[in-house]
């Protein structure tokens, strides 16, 4: 089975790095969508189905926290797992994001092993 993944980050470098790291981890991919902020992601999710979202927190327009809160309030999107990939390593922020409804929290720099582990945890059991 191949997966549709959405990567949300305002940095093109970060989005490219995550996409390449997914390939290096040999995650079977059907489509990899990209969005530059939470609003672009929410708009995109009205048109396409994804199996998993990787998102940053600190983004313009709609940040990662608000994006997750909005997704959790929508019947269509509330079951999609969201994995945060952030530079913010504070325990307080991680707790805040768990409360908002994220499934896992990775800190940059990430490794192929990190990504493979979360994909297996949240998708292979689905």
């Amino acid at each position: 089975m191949a997966y549709n993944i959405l990567i949300v980050d305002d940095s093109l470098t970060a989005r490219t790095f995550i996409a390449r790291t997914l390939q290096m981890a040999e995650v079977p991919l059907s489509q990899v969508y990209q969005a530059r902020n939470g609003q672009e992601a929410l708009d995109l999710l009205q048109r396409v189905w994804v199996d998993l979202v990787f998102a940053d927190i600190n983004m313009p327009t709609v940040n990662g926290t608000e994006m997750v809160r909005q997704m959790r309030a929508m019947d269509l999107l509330k079951s999609i797992p969201v994995i945060i990939i952030s530079t913010d390593r504070s325990a307080q922020r991680m707790a805040e994001m768990r409360e908002a409804g994220v499934q896992a929290y990775l800190t940059k720099p990430i490794t192929p092993e990190d990504l493979k582990a979360v994909v297996e945890r949240f998708l292979k059991s689905a």
Binding site: S11, A14, S86, T87, R89, S90
Partner: peptide
């Protein structure tokens, strides 16, 4: 992006 990551890890 590199500076962003350095800063996050430095603050940690």
């Amino acid at each position: 992006e590199l500076l962003n990551i350095v800063c996050g890890n430095y603050l940690h």
